[in-house]
Design a protein around this nucleic acid. Structure first.
Length: 1152
RNA sequence: GCUCAAGUGGCGGAAUUGGUAGACGCGCUGGAUUCAAAAUCCAGUUCUUUCGGGAGUGUGGGUUCGAUUCCCACCUUGAGUACCA
C-alpha cells in the first residue's frame, strides 16, 4: 500500500468536519488555552504560501496543547470590511458584500485543504451585522465615557455630569480637549442642552472634532498616519494632502501611559514593543514660560532690563522698609492664614501663590502673580495696616491691575472647601480676562508703534509669554535664543517693525513649501529674526527670538528654547546665523558639534546647576522652576488621538444621528444599524461620503428605525452619520467575540469571558505593530475599565511570523538598436528588420559585454544580421520576470510554455539561446507578489505533495520569526520523509507493525525525539523539530524498527505537524478515536543514559581526534589515558604540554 | 540621523550556563536498480593541500586552556521611525 496523500487528507478533513473534532467547549474540567491568528482580510487574490505560515505554527501549538490535555480555543474568521473590496466595487459596480462573500469562500476552501484544527463554529466576520452590532455597541460605550485622571480609568459620562451639576468643571481632572472653558455649577445648569452636549463632547472618549486630516483625494478617504508611507498612501501610492474635516476621533491619548506600562506585563517581541514605545513617544521634561520683552525694550530703549527681569519683585518705592516686615509676618501667620497657605502653597491649585507679598506699598496676604489675583483674609491682627479695605482694594485693582478677593477667618477655618473652590473659579476668570487683556494690549502696542507719541505705562502691562516644552531643563543656562514655528500665533505680535518685512517673507516662503519638501530637505537651515527678545527666567538675560521651520507648529507648544551646545539642530541653526553658542558642559569640546550625551556630563556655567550631573541637574532645575513659578515638570506624548471616521462605504455605520447639529447615540437596543444600499460607492457630487448616496438613511427617533430620507422634513426624523468606521474598528475586539461568538444578547457572556480571559498565544505579522495591536490594546483597557472584560491586556504572548519571500525567475531579453551618427544608406529599421526578440540563457554571460557578443554571434550565425552592419548594432540586456510556474527545480525554463503564456503574447516568435539544450533562468529573492510572477499557490503544493508536506515544509524553511525565501524544490525532502515514515508502518502487504518489545536503541531514539520535539514546540522552534523527526525516521529505518511500542507514540509527536498521515496510521494501528486528544508521550531520561563518551581531544583548542572513554572515569584517569594514547604523542611530537584541561563528560584540551 | 534585528558552505538553515562548527534538507558528484526515465537505495559534498596537514562562522582587536556563543570598535544588509525640542 502506497502513501496516497490526496485520499488520506480528503478523508480526514471530512472526518474532522463531521465529528466537529476541534469544537471548543466553554465549560470544561481541563485547563484552557487560547491560540489565535491575526484574522485575514479576504482579498481577491486568495492565499499564497506565505499566508498560512503563522496559521500552521499556531495550529501545531494548538494541537500540541490538546495532546497535553488542554481545552483549546483555536478559532478563525475574517476581517471583511476594507478598502480593496470597495475599490473593486467602484470599478465593477458589484456590491462589496458579494465579492467579499466570494473571496471568503475561496479562502475557506484553501484553508480547509491545509488541515487546520479551527473551531469553525465560532467564525466571525467583521462585516456581518450580527458582529458589527457589537462594534457599534462598543462605540456607544466609548461615547458615554470620559477619562478620570484621578481614578486613572474610564468612567461613565453620567459621573462627569454629576460633578458639573454640583461643582462645575474646575475641579475635574480629566483627559479632554485643550480649549475647554471653565464654568461653575450654576453656569452649567444655565447652559442650553446643546451647549451642555458640546461641552461633554470635549470629554468623551470618542468625540467629534475639526481635525487636520490626511486626505487622499484619489482614494476619497482619510488615512491614519501609519497608512502613509513617505508622504503617499501606503495602498496605491497616491498623494496625500492636509485638510480640515469634522471627524470622529478616539481619545487614545488618555491611555498613553497605561499602554506604555502594559508593555512590561506582556510577552511580546521586543522590536514590536519598541515600535509601540516609540509611537507613544513619551518624553519627560518641563514646561517653561519665557516672558517676552515689549518691543520698546526689545529694541533697547526705555526701561532698565534688569529691573524688569525679576517678575516676582513687585514692590514699590518703600520696598526696602516693608520687606523685613513681610518676612516677619510670614513667620507668624494667623491660624486662618496658615490653613489657607497649606492649600495654596506648592502649586496645589496649579497656580503659584506667594504669601505676605509686597505689591507696590502694600503687603498682601496671598497673591498669584501670573493670574494677578490677590487673596486677603480679614480680621487682620497687624494693626498698622488698618487702612480701609476698600481703599486698598481700589488702589490694587485700579492701579496695579490685580483682582482682590476677601475671605473672613471664619470662612477659611469653617469651610475651606468652598473657599478653595471660589479661589479656583477666580483663577480661571482671571486667566480669561488676562488673555483678553493681552489681545487688547497687543492692539495698543501696535498702535504705539504706529503712533510713537503715545507711551505705555509699563506697570500695568501684561507681557506676552512663550511656553516651551523641553526634555533638558538641566541645560536651561545654555539657552542663547528661542525658535518659534513660523505658524506660531505670537510671531505677528512680537515682531518688531524693523524685522517685519523679513519675517513675513520667511513665513510666506515656508508656507509655500509643502510638507513633503520640508521632509525631504532636512539639511537646509532657514529662519528669520523677529527682533523681539525674551527674558531668561533664571539669568534674566535677553534672548533673541527667531522663527525657523525646523520647529513644528504641531508638536508640543510650537516653540523651543534653543540650547545650541546640547542639541544638534539648535547648534546648526546658531552656526548658520552666527548666534553665540555658550558652553555649559564641563570639559566638553563643542567647536565641531553639539554635545548631546546626557550620561556622565557635568553641567558648568549654570549658577546653581553647575557641577551637577544630568539626573540631579534635571531634578533641581524643575524643582527651582516650580518654586519660582515659571515652569513645571511635565510628561509629553507623541501619541495623537486616533481619527476614527472614514469617508467610505464598506465599513461599519455609526449608530449616530444628528439633532440640532449635535450627535446623538441610537439606543443600544435598536442595533445593529445596518449598512444601507447605495447606487454607487463614490463620494457624492457635493463631496459627501458614499453614504450620502443612500436614499434610506434617516433616523426616525419615534419609531426607532432607519427610514427614507424623504421623511427628514418630519420633526422627529434626523439625518444619520455619513462616515463609516475605519478598518481597525472590528479588529480591535474580535478576540473577545470568539469566546462566545453566537451570543445575540451580549458581545460575549461574562462566564465565557471569565473562562477564556485572554489570548494565550497570538500569532501574526509585524506590520500591525502600531495599528491593530495598539488600538486593540486601547479598546481592551477601556472595556476593562468598564468592567466588561476581566483582563486589561488581551494577548499574553505574541509572536511575529516572518515573511515568506518569493524566488523570482528572470529571463534576459536582448534589445537591438542602431547606433546614432553613422552614415549608412539604409534606414535604421532595415538594419534591424530581421532581428527577432532573443532571450539568452543565464549562465552564458557574466556581464553586459559578453551578453552583447553572444547575441551578435547568434544573429550572425543565423543570418539574421548583415555582417556589414554588425558594428552599427548595439544590444542591451533587459531582465524580465518569468512566471515561476514555468520554471522547474533546476532553474530550467519551459520555453514553449513561456511562448504560449497569455502574458507573453509579444514573445510568441522569440528565439532562445540555450545552454546544454536548456534555457536557464536567473533567480532573485523578492517579496512575493503578483506583479513579480513569483507567487506560489498552496493549492498546487497540496495537490502535488499534500497538506502534511506543505505544513512540514513551511516549518522546515527556517525560524518562524525570520523572513525566508520560498523554493518549491526543497519540498521533496519533507515529502520523501513522509514516504519513509509510511514505510515504517506499511509495506506492500499492509500494516507491518509488531507487538514485540522494543530494543534499548529503539527506545533511545524515541525518547531523544520526545525530548527534543517537546522542547522545540515550547520554544516555538518548529524548524528544528522537523529535522528531529527526519533523524528519528532515518534512525528507525536503519534499525529496521517496526515495534508498536515505538511507532505509536511517534505518531502523537508528529500529529501536530502532519495531522493527516498521523491520523491515518493511528487508525491503521487499530485506534478507534481521533489521535487529536491522545496524550503526549512522556519523556523518560533513563533511556538516554550512556555508559561512555566519545571525547573530543583538542590541542590548543582545536579538535584533532576523538577517543571513546567510559563515563565513570575520573579526571586523572582520563588525563592519564589520553596522554598515553599514541595519537596524543603524535600530535605533541615530543613537546611537553604546559597544561591539560579535562572536563569530564565534555572535552579534553591539551595546551602546549 | 536614530532605534531594533541579523551576518555561518552553492542554497534554506543547525549548534549558546563558552567545550567535536556545518546537524537536517535542497542542490551537486559518483554508483546501484532500469531498455530508458521517474521513483528508490548507497557513497561523497566548507575551503585549501605537496594528502602529513593547514585555514575557516562579516572585519579588526580583546577576555579565555578553549569563542559562531562573552566584551570593544568597525563594515554590510534588513525592518521601523524620522526636523519630537
Amino acid at each position: 500500500m502506497q502513501y496516497n496523500h490526496q485520499e488520506i487528507e480528503k478523508n480526514w478533513q471530512k472526518f474532522w468536519a463531521e465529528n466537529q473534532t476541534f469544537k471548543a467547549s466553554n465549560e470544561s474540567e481541563k485547563p484552557k488555552y487560547y491560540v489565535l491568528d491575526m484574522f485575514p482580510y479576504p482579498s481577491g487574490a486568495g492565499l499564497h504560501v506565505g499566508h498560512p505560515l503563522g496559521y500552521i505554527a499556531s495550529d501545531i501549538y494548538a494541537r500540541y496543547k490538546r495532546h497535553q490535555g488542554f481545552n483549546v480555543l483555536h478559532p478563525q474568521g475574517y476581517d471583511s470590511f476594507g478598502l480593496p473590496a470597495e475599490q473593486y466595487a467602484i470599478q465593477t459596480g458589484q456590491h462589496p458584500a458579494k465579492t467579499t462573500e466570494e473571496n471568503i469562500k475561496t479562502y475557506r476552501n484553501q484553508l480547509d485543504k491545509i488541515g487546520f484544527s479551527f473551531d469553525w463554529s465560532r467564525e466571525v466576520r467583521t462585516s456581518n451585522p450580527e458582529y458589527y452590532k457589537w462594534t457599534q455597541w462598543i462605540f456607544i460605550q466609548l461615547f458615554n465615557s470620559w477619562y478620570n485622571k484621578d481614578s486613572d480609568k474610564a468612567e461613565d459620562i453620567s459621573s462627569l455630569e454629576k460633578i458639573f451639576k454640583t461643582a462645575g468643571n474646575t475641579k475635574v481632572n480629566a483627559v479632554c480637549d485643550e480649549d475647554v472653558k471653565p464654568f461653575s455649577a450654576e453656569e452649567w445648569k444655565a447652559f442650553s442642552k446643546t451647549e451642555q452636549e458640546e461641552i461633554l463632547l470635549q470629554y468623551r472618549l470618542t468625540f467629534l472634532s475639526d481635525t487636520e486630516v490626511n486626505w487622499c483625494p484619489a482614494l476619497g478617504t482619510v488615512l491614519a498616519n501609519d497608512e502613509i508611507v513617505n508622504g503617499v498612501s501606503e495602498r496605491g501610492g497616491h498623494p496625500v494632502v492636509r485638510k480640515k474635516m469634522t471627524q470622529w476621533s478616539m481619545r487614545i491619548s488618555a491611555y498613553a501611559q497605561r499602554l506604555l506600562d502594559g508593555l512590561e506585563t506582556i510577552d511580546w517581541p521586543q522590536p514590536l514593543k519598541d515600535s509601540q514605545t516609540n509611537w507613544i513617544g513619551r518624553s519627560q521634561g518641563a514646561m517653561v514660560t519665557f516672558e517676552v520683552l515689549s518691543p520698546t525694550l526689545s529694541e533697547g530703549k526705555g526701561e532698565n532690563v534688569q529691573s524688569e527681569v525679576k517678575g516676582y519683585i513687585t514692590g514699590g518705592n518703600n520696598s526696602y522698609l516693608l520687606l523685613e516686615k513681610a518676612k516677619e509676618m510670614r513667620a507668624n501667620p494667623t491660624p486662618a492664614e496658615a490653613i489657607l497657605w497649606k492649600y495654596l502653597k506648592g502649586k496645589k491649585l496649579k497656580s503659584k501663590f506667594r504669601q505676605q507679598h509686597l505689591i507696590n506699598d502694600f503687603i498682601v496676604d496671598f497673591v498669584c502673580l501670573s493670574k494677578r489675583l490677590i487673596i486677603e483674609v480679614d480680621g487682620n491682627i497687624h494693626d498698622y495696616q488698618l487702612e480701609k479695605d476698600e481703599e486698598r482694594t481700589l488702589e490694587l485693582e485700579q492701579k496695579s491691575g490685580f483682582k482682590v478677593i476677601r475671605f473672613t477667618n471664619e470662612e477659611v477655618i469653617g469651610d475651606i472647601e468652598t473657599v478653595i473652590f471660589k479661589i479656583e473659579k477666580e483663577l480661571n476668570n482671571q486667566f480669561y480676562k488676562l488673555q483678553k487683556l493681552e489681545k487688547e494690549q497687543i492692539q495698543t502696542v501696535s498702535d504705539t508703534v504706529e503712533n510713537p507719541t503715545v507711551s505705555l505705562s509699563s506697570g500695568k502691562r501684561v507681557r506676552d509669554r512663550i511656553q516651551v516644552f523641553t526634555t533638558r531643563p538641566d541645560t536651561i543656562y545654555g539657552v542663547s535664543f528661542m525658535t518659534l514655528a513660523p505658524e506660531h500665533e505670537l510671531v505677528s505680535k512680537i515682531t518688531t517693525p524693523a524685522q517685519k518685512a523679513a519675517v513675513e517673507a520667511y513665513i510666506k516662503a515656508t508656507a509655500k513649501r509643502s510638507e513633503r519638501d520640508r521632509m525631504a530637505d532636512v539639511k537646509t537651515i532657514s529662519g528669520a529674526f523677529t527682533g523681539a527678545y525674551a527674558i531668561h527666567p533664571f539669568s534674566g538675560e535677553k534672548i533673541p527670538i527667531w522663527i525657523g521651520d525646523y520647529v513644528l507648529a504641531g508638536y508640543g507648544t510650537g516653540a523651543v528654547m534653543a540650547v545650541p551646545c546640547g542639541d544638534q539642530r539648535d547648534y546648526d541653526f546658531a552656526k548658520h546665523f552666527g548666534i553665540p553658542i555658550p558652553n555649559i558642559f564641563e570639559g566638553v569640546d563643542i567647536s565641531e558639534a553639539a554635545h548631546t550625551e546626557k550620561q556622565g556630563t557635568v553641567i558648568a556655567n549654570s549658577d546653581f546647576l553647575s557641577g551637577l550631573k544630568y539626573q540631579k541637574a534635571l531634578k533641581l532645575a524643575i524643582f527651582e522652576m516650580e518654586k519660582r513659578g515659571f515652569g513645571y515638570g511635565k510628561i509629553n506624548y507623541r501619541l495623537r488621538d486616533a481619527v476614527f471616521s472614514r469617508q467610505r462605504y464598506w465599513g461599519e455605520p455609526f449608530p449616530v444621528y444628528y439633532k440640532d447639529g449635535m450627535p446623538q447615540m441610537i439606543d443600544a437596543k435598536h442595533l445593529p444599524i445596518v449598512l444601507p444600499e447605495v447606487e454607487k460607492y463614490l463620494p457624492t457630487e457635493d463631496g459627501k461620503p458614499p453614504l450620502g448616496n443612500a436614499t434610506e438613511w434617516a433616523w426616525d427617533s419615534r419609531a426607532n428605525k432607519v427610514v427614507s430620507n424623504d421623511k427628514l422634513k418630519n420633526k422627529t426624523v434626523y439625518p444619520l452619520e455619513l462616515n463609516t468606521m475605519p478598518g481597525w474598528a472590528g479588529s480591535s475586539w474580535y478576540f473577545n467575540r470568539y469566546m462566545d461568538s453566537q451570543n445575540s444578547t451580549e458581545f460575549a457572556s461574562k462566564e465565557s469571558l471569565d473562562y477564556w480571559k485572554e489570548v494565550d498565544l497570538y500569532i501574526g505579522g509585524s506590520e500591525h505593530a502600531t495599528g491593530h495591536l495598539l488600538y486593540a490594546r486601547f479598546w481592551q483597557k477601556f472595556l476593562f475599565d468598564k468592567g466588561l472584560v476581566p483582563v486589561d491586556e488581551f494577548a499574553k504572548k505574541l509572536i511575529n511570523q516572518g515573511m515568506i519571500l518569493g524566488t523570482s525567475a528572470f529571463v534576459y531579453k536582448a534589445t537591438s538598436f542602431v547606433k546614432n551618427g553613422c552614415n549608412i544608406d539604409k534606414s535604421n529599421d532595415d538594419v534591424i528588420e530581421k532581428i527577432p526578440t532573443v532571450f539568452v540563457s543565464k549562465s552564458l554571460f557574466s556581464n553586459d559585454d559578453e551578453f552583447e557578443t553572444i547575441v551578435k554571434n547568434y544573429l550572425l550565425d543565423n543570418k539574421l544580421l548583415d555582417p556589414n552592419f554588425a558594428d552599427l548594432v548595439m544590444i542591451t540586456k533587459t531582465p524580465l520576470h518569468a512566471d515561476v510556474s514555468l520554471v522547474n527545480n533546476s532553474d530550467e525554463l519551459d520555453v514553449e510554455g513561456f511562448k504560449n503564456h497569455p502574458l507573453n503574447a509579444d514573445y510568441k516568435n522569440a528565439e532562445f539561446i540555450l545552454e546544454d539544450g536548456v534555457y536557464k533562468v536567473g533567480r532573485e529573492v523578492e517579496k512575493m507578489s503578483k506583479s513579480k510572477y513569483n507567487v506560489v499557490n498552496p493549492d498546487d503544493i497540496v495537490k502535488e505533495y499534500g497538506a502534511d508536506a506543505l505544513r512540514l515544509f513551511e516549518m522546515f524553511l527556517g525560524p518562524l520569526e525570520q523572513a525566508k525565501p520560498w523554493k518549491t524544490s526543497g519540498i521533496s525532502g519533507v515529502y520523501s520523509f513522509l514516504k519513509k515514515l509510511w514505510k515504517l508502518y506499511i509495506s506492500e502487504d499492509g500494516v507491518i507493525v509488531s507487538e514485540e518489545k522494543a530494543t534499548k536503541d529503539e527506545l533511545k531514539v524515541l525518547h531523544k525525539t520526545i525530548k527534543k520535539v517537546q522542547e522545540d514546540i515550547e520554544n516555538f522552534s518548529f524548524n528544528t523539530s522537523v529535522s528531529t523527526f527526519m533523524i528519528a525516521v532515518n534512525d528507525l529505518t536503519a534499525l529496521k524498527c517496526n515495534k508498536k511500542e515505538i511507532l505509536e507514540p511517534l505518531l502523537v509527536l508528529l500529529s501536530p505537524y502532519a495531522p493527516h498521515i498521523s491520523e491515518e496510521l493511528w487508525s491503521k494501528l487499530g485506534n478507534k478515536k481521533s489521535i487529536s486528544t491522545a496524550p503526549f508521550p512522556v519523556f523518560d531520561a533513563k533511556h538516554l543514559v550512556e555508559s561512555s563518551k566519545n571525547y573530543p581531544i583538542s590541542f590548543n583548542g582545536k579538535m584533532r581526534f576523538t577517543l571513546e572513554l567510559p563515563l565513570e572515569l575520573s579526571k586523572d584517569e582520563i588525563e592519564k589515558t589520553v596522554m598515553e594514547h599514541e595519537k596524543t604523542q603524535e600530535q605533541l611530537a615530543g613537546r611537553v604540554p604546559k597544561k591539560v584541561i579535562v572536563v569530564p563528560g565534555k572535552i579534553v584540551n591539551i595546551v602546549g
